[in-house]
Write a protein that binds this DNA or RNA. Structure first.
Lengths: 223, 223
DNA sequence: AACCTGTAAGTTGTATACAGGTATACCGGT
DNA sequence: ACCGGTATACCTGTATACAACTTACAGGTT
């Protein structure tokens, strides 16, 4: 398993190492409880400690590892942890949408619908990576549009993990066939309905429903 | 302005530098827009670039500075940004409390009440730092108790900032006299009421009220 | 047998060195 | 006066070096 190489374009060595470790940790190649040392990892990548150290700090910031006196212990991302992650996504997105509810969202909605169509197109062509990218971007756009610096910050702190999880689960869901993926794409319209309604209550409900459904999907695709 | 030295006990040089910079940034000594270079800061602290680099990453993770190709630009924490911070605190705490609502919280509540009394005691003795510490710990305990790894992680990402803001605002509020501080301490009982009720609706309402009131306080104490 | 101690290997935190890139200021040409 | 090119100083990313600390273990002591 590997990131689309485009994602690592222009990244520093440190970011690149963080990316690969992230994938190995989330993918389960590196197991929770394992202890990573800067030296060994550096040697493994044929790099020096500096970029590895930077990568460790990044991953610790994402909660994937925990820095201790002696070595970094892998926390990992079990099914329960992914559900927790989705709790946070729910909090962030429902907040963002409630913030958007009171303005004119015509342009945003048009853009989001375009991305749903992008997903469907990707589904028809069996392009799993592109589907995941559109899916991810859909949600990121909503957060971005809310123009709330702190919320955006919370988002960036889980951004990479969410991206990775979406990539992994999309790969698995693709195995269930094109019609299933069309269904997944269409599910996003629900969210748009919430936006259109402008009702705080409705938004909470719709976003909750969206992530509840995602939770169910998770059960199938992870482990 | 300075941290209680106890807070920096056992901290590495990097953490300590992060702490001092954080205080300078939030306190406004270093102004938003200013550009920090690793070299200059290192020289200023009589240290090498390594710990400064680490400090920069920490502060960037907290959103206090933004790392760019050339230098780190100070984002700062204006009044609006603090209000955004409180939005996030609201999200985190209301979530945490809703999670707690369904269990038996007798022990927790006893502990929280003890901390309220601690605040009142600090108020009577004019011990501003202790008051801030108790106040901070009160909220941290709630988050901690929810036992939700991801939420706890969001909390740690703003923890230092919240601590600093509470410290600064408490200092300012202390000038308004002891009775005002007793009032602030008592305000926390409201939150406990929410916990006791166990009603999702009531909790949202109470926590919302708490932070709305805090927002008002902010207006007085910052800038 | 239990415990204490000294040593050796490994780890992090910090300092320093080097390479590649970027902005700035200055200088010559038009 | 203005524009373009170059030299220069500075900045970040990475590599390497060193010191202090932690851990594990072996061997001697009680």
């Amino acid at each position: 398993m590997q990131y689309p190489s485009a994602w690592l374009q222009g990244a520093s060595l440190g970011e690149s190492i963080a990316g690969r470790l992230r994938l190995q940790i989330i993918g389960g190649e590196i197991e929770p409880g394992e202890i990573l040392s800067e030296n060994r990892i550096a040697e493994g990548f044929g790099a020096s400690r500096s970029p590895v150290r930077e990568a460790f700090r990044t991953l610790a910031g994402e909660g994937l590892i925990r820095l201790e006196r002696m070595g970094a212990v892998v926390v990992g991302l079990e099914l329960d942890a992914v559900k927790e992650l989705y709790d946070v996504r729910y909090l962030i997105e429902s907040f963002a949408q409630q913030r958007l509810a009171s303005r004119d969202n015509a342009a945003l909605i048009a853009r989001l619908e375009q991305q749903i169509d992008g997903m469907k197109l990707a589904a028809r062509y069996g392009d799993c990576v592109e589907f995941a990218h559109q899916d991810f971007s859909f949600h990121e756009r909503i957060v971005e549009e809310a123009q709330h610096t702190r919320i955006r910050h919370l988002w960036t702190s889980i951004r990479s993990i969410v991206m990775t999880v979406i990539l992994l689960t999309t790969e698995k869901e693709f195995e269930r066939g094109e019609s299933r993926m069309i269904e997944v794409a269409e599910k996003h319209r629900m969210v748009i309905e919430g936006l259109k309604s402008g009702s705080e209550e409705k938004i909470r409900e719709v976003v909750r429903a969206y992530f509840d459904d995602s939770d169910a999907t998770l059960g199938r695709s992870l482990y």
